[in-house]
Structure formats: structure tokens, C-alpha cells
Design a protein around this nucleic acid. Structure first.
Lengths: 339, 339
DNA sequence: TTGAAAGCGCTAACAT
DNA sequence: ATGTTAGCGCTTTCAA
């Protein structure tokens, strides 16, 4: 068998059996007009020859590629990998494939990824914004063309675009209260860039959590970083060097939490005796580190599944109005935050 | 703009300018026959309308989809994510996209993944075998049809299929010798399934390493597991419960190394004082755990790049004979193995 | 019950 | 210098 001809087409089957291409097509689709005998013969041969319809031809004809583009800030974080698995799970059930691209946390690569994926004629996009993204023109173009689009975790344009998020305010409150209950009073928070919804919401939960515990908000205990390991270490150092050191820190996400852990240890502080730590992360790594990290765990697989479900709702009903699915997080208490 | 008509075609441009479709095609491809004026006009309009050639149409015509299928045992391990980034890096330069599938370490899903990817008409496959795979029929079908195929890390059919691996024998020897140099004498090894090349080769390196240190090989110090966390914990427990406990352990890969670390700690042993530990892993996690894990680091990104390069060699020259690229690993010494 | 023809978007051989 | 035609694989109207 030759390269480029390794796939059987309707033509091959038609020639072999001695009927027209259209008859073969109908037979394979169980069209009632075709005689049972021909249908049987065609289907038998097709099975033998391992016929599968050419998706390029179908795509061209139906103007539907059955492909979804997925853009994530990075591929090497368990958080995104796991969400992707969730998307894949639902997509597979619908006979769709996903094309994965990484923005590497930069706006420039995100724009490029949108362009490239649209070039390949994906039917739409499922996206988690890069940390740099505060300009949404590249998405507005999709919105205006009514191309299916779903955001998850880091979202924007929530009025027009369906999205999946977790209840960040609640999560951050849970953390603050947990610290309080365990005797910590100088609770610090390492946030991310202001324009990200996750950062804003968690900040809001942090502050309202402090209030409801009767603690004041001390601006010096809220530091920001750009979500990179390096910057998170700097932020942690800044906190540890305060005249009045915090006795508890929580980080906005995985990367930040682990970086904070490294820096706290490096400076010779004990966790949780000197500084308690809580992360915002998924289940995987929290138990590998030492001490095991108390953290808000995300239902990552479900986030992916929900995002995919919203996506197919868009595909099937382009007029439907944008909804937001809010999932709950869980505070899993481990050693890093209990004296 | 309507759904399903959000992409401009040659026809649209042709109609607008009042020339034929082929003229437009030629103009866009800078065909010398076309008058400079028409060429200019066409290219200008194409740019304005954001024309991009329809890859489905091109794929149909050229019988080349510019897509590569990639199958990995799982998506949530940094090792594979990082390799995928490497593949993507080269693929992007060549204008190819990759379609990622996970076998979830099962043969059944691997077969399914091969089938599905072939159905989408990827031009070929880059694969790391699932841990269950010892039957290669699903790949033989590709080989016989001369469909581009490259294996990495866990490989088979190396005579016929190009592959990228690391020097596993050497790596395992390095570990054994490192243990010896640091005063450890009862060196244990947690291997994987026998049929996997990586397991065989590392076992071989382990044994020859022992020999070259003048240590005997004690069969009870070589245990096997199926590469799952759970099984690796069992294997570790088995080692720790030996009448004569090993004073050093190395695990065949990331998952195993981390599981071993957990179990050693859980049983109350100190690392490295009671039991030293070395992992076979990539750089990312080794420094997050405590104590930091000495390990053989894989050049993951390069593995991906090399695999992609081999793939394109197949595409460009289908007759070329299968070569194997062997990359070197590095032993990075951290606290877990030095008393 | 079946076949012929058109068309999805594109290129290339073959006219003109 | 440009247009026409055929064909990549498939479905679907229209004809028979």
C-alpha cells in the first residue's frame, strides 16, 4: 500500500462492487432506498477494508471540523493538564478532537494561538487567559463572528461569553477563617496581577474573611506577583522581611504556593510553626511536598468537563445566552497550616 | 457575519475583484504570469479580508493534513508535558499542528488512540508506549503502510522505527556508583514491567553498576511495580520490610520516586540518614520535595525536539532507514542521597 | 432502487 | 495574462 493512498475511499468501494459512489454513500448511511442486498455488501466490504470517512472531505462539505481549540497559560502544570483531560472526556463523547495551544502566559502568544487555531478551522475555542491579558480584542473578533467561545478559571467578557469558574471569594474566605481558627493572626496573601478575575476575587475574599474574623486589613500583608516562581519568591521574601513578620501566608496558586514554601524554608523558618502556609492548588502535589500543603483544591477535571459542555451548548444553540458555571472548591487541611 | 461563513474564500475575493478564482490563487502565490497590478490588488484585498487558505481544502487536495498525532501514557506528568512542548516547538516551525492523545497507560486506550488519530488523517504518529504494551500489531499496521512513526522513551521495533531514548544503562550505573561513593552498600532498585525497554536497560545498568563497584547483586533488592503510585508504595514497603533493609533506593521514574519518598517518610525513616533515595525524573519536582531529590534528569524538551525532527525526516524521506537518537542524562545531586 | 451532477475550497494542467 | 476544467472525498438534490 502506498503513502497517501493508505486510506480507502467511497470510490474504491464503489469500483470494487460495481455501483456508483452515491450508492455506496447511501448504503453506508443506511439510506432506506438502497436494496438490503447492496447495503449488506457495501457495509461488509467497507468493514473489511477498514473504511473511515475522510474528515477533511466531511469538514469541507459540512463546514464543521469537529475540532475544538484549547488555549492554556501553560502545559506543564497539573492544573491545566487535568482540566484538559476533562475537556477531552466530553469532547470524545461527542466525536470531537481538541487542538491544544499554550500561551506561555504571554498576550502575544495568546493572540498568535487564537489566530493559528482559527486558521485550522477549529469550530471554536475554550480558553484560560494568559496572565498578561487585559486587552480582549482578539476574543471580541470571535464574539462578533458568533464563534463558539468558552472561558475557564481566568475569564473576561462574562456577559457575552459562557465561563466556568470556582467560587474564589468563598475559597479565600475559607482560608482566612481556617488560619484564624488555628490561631494565626497576621495573615498575608500573595496575589496575582490586578486585572485577573481570580486575583481580584481572591483578594476580595481575603479581605472580607479578615473582617468577619474581626481582624484588620494590613496593606503590607497583601503583596502581588506575576505568577512566576521567581517573582513569587521575591514576594515571599518581601513578606518575611517585614518588621512584623506574618505568621501565615496563602498563595494565589500552585506555582506561588510552592515557591513560597521553598523561600520560607530557605530562610530557615519552620512550617507551620513559624509561618503557616496554604496553597491554592489541585490535589496532586500537595501531598508530595513537606510538610504536606493545606490547600484549596480545584475540581479540575470537572472544570474541564463543564467548559466542554458549555462549548457544545454554544455549538448546538448559537443563540443561547452566556451563562457562568460556578464550581465549589474544598479546603483540604494538612500539616502546613496546623500547629 | 454568519456562522459557517466566517472565513473568506478565494471565491469571495474573485467575485469582489472581478477575476477568476484561479487568477486569485495564482496572485496569492506570486505566480509570475499574473500582472503586477492584479497581483497587488488581490493581495491587498486578501489581507484586508483576513484571508487564510482553508486547510481542509488543502489537505484534501494535497493529501497532507500537516497534523501529527502524539500519544503519551499520561498528560499530567511534567515529563510528558515537557516533551510535548519540545515536539510542538519543532512542529510549529514546520507549520504543523499536533493532536495529543493519552493512552492512560493502557494498551486498549493506546490502540484506540492510534485508530482515532489515523481517522483524523494525521500524517503520522509520535508515540511513547503505554506500560501495558507488549503487543505491537497496531503499530505494525502503520509500519507496513509506511506511515511516519517515531517512538520516544519507551520504544519498540527499533530496527524499523526511528526513536529517541536516553542512555538508560549509563544512567542507572551513575546512580549505583553515586550511592556507592557516598557509602551506601545495600542498594535497592524499584523497576517497572519487564517488557519495557526502559525497565530492562535500567535494570542492566543497575546490575553492572553494582558489579563495577564490587558489590554483589541481591535479587531481593530488585523489586518490580507497575509504575502506579499505589504499586510503587507497595514495592517500597516490601523493600523496607526486608530483614536486612536497603540503605539506598532508586526508583525507575517520577511517580515511583515520589511514592517511595512518601512511604519511606510514612514509615518514619529519615532520608538520607536511614534510607537514601534517588529518582529518575526531570528537573521540575525534584526541588519541591523535602529533602530535595537527587535524580537523573532527562532532557525532556530536547527529547521532544529530536522526536519531531526524526518525524520530519520520515515525512521528507520515507525511504530513510530508522535511526535511534540517544541523549544523555545528568545526575543532579541533592540532599536525598548524601549523608 | 440507483446514478449523475453539483458543490464545499483549492491547485494545476490545459486551454485561450 | 487569464480563464476553464478536473479532481481531492463526500453528501445531496435531481433525474431516471
Amino acid at each position: 500500500m502506498q503513502r497517501g493512498k493508505s486510506h480507502v475511499s467511497l470510490k474504491d468501494i464503489a469500483r470494487e462492487i460495481g455501483v456508483s459512489i452515491s450508492t455506496v454513500s447511501r448504503a453506508l448511511n443506511n439510506h432506506p432506498d438502497i436494496s438490503p442486498e447492496v447495503t449488506r455488501k457495501v457495509q461488509k466490504l467497507a468493514a473489511e477494508l477498514n473504511y473511515t470517512p475522510n474528515p477533511l472531505a466531511m469538514g469541507l462539505l459540512k463546514q464543521a471540523t469537529r475540532m475544538i481549540g484549547v488555549i492554556v497559560p501553560d502545559l506543564v502544570t497539573h492544573f491545566y493538564s487535568s482540566i484538559i483531560s476533562g475537556i477531552e472526556d466530553i469532547a470524545e463523547q461527542k466525536g470531537y478532537y481538541i487542538l491544544i495551544a499554550s500561551s506561555n502566559e504571554t498576550l502575544q502568544k495568546e493572540i498568535k494561538a487564537v489566530e493559528n487555531l482559527m486558521k485550522t478551522r477549529v469550530e471554536g475555542l475554550i480558553v484560560c487567559l494568559s496572565q498578561e491579558t487585559k486587552n480582549y480584542e482578539h476574543f471580541d473578533r470571535l464574539i462578533n463572528n458568533n464563534i463558539p467561545l468558552v472561558f475557564f478559571d481566568r475569564v473576561c467578557r462574562t456577559g457575552e461569553v459562557p465561563s466556568v469558574v470556582v467560587d474564589n471569594v468563598d475559597a479565600a474566605q475559607k482560608i482566612t477563617k481556617h488560619f484564624y481558627k488555628n490561631g494565626f493572626r497576621r495573615i498575608a496573601y500573595i496575589a496575582g496581577p490586578d486585572h485577573l478575575n481570580i486575583s481580584q476575587e481572591r483578594t476580595q475574599g481575603y479581605i472580607s474573611g479578615l473582617k468577619s474574623c474581626g481582624l484588620g486589613f494590613h496593606p503590607e500583608l497583601l503583596v502581588k506577583c506575576n505568577l512566576s516562581s521567581k517573582d513569587a519568591i521575591k514576594a515571599t521574601a518581601q513578606l518575611l522581611n517585614l518588621p512584623e513578620r506574618p505568621d501565615a501566608i496563602f498563595g494565589i496558586n500552585d506555582t506561588v504556593a510552592f515557591a513560597a514554601m521553598k523561600e520560607i524554608k530557605r530562610q530557615g523558618f519552620r512550617i507551620p510553626e513559624d509561618v503557616a502556609l496554604v496553597g491554592f492548588t489541585d490535589e496532586f502535589h500537595s501531598t508530595v511536598v513537606d510538610p504536606a500543603l493545606t490547600s484549596i483544591t480545584h475540581p479540575t477535571f470537572e472544570i474541564g468537563q463543564e467548559a466542554a459542555r458549555l462549548f457544545f451548548r454554544c455549538v448546538e444553540n448559537p443563540e443561547a445566552k452566556a451563562t457562568q458555571v460556578i464550581l465549589n472548591t474544598k479546603l483540604v487541611i494538612r500539616k502546613s497550616s496546623v500547629k
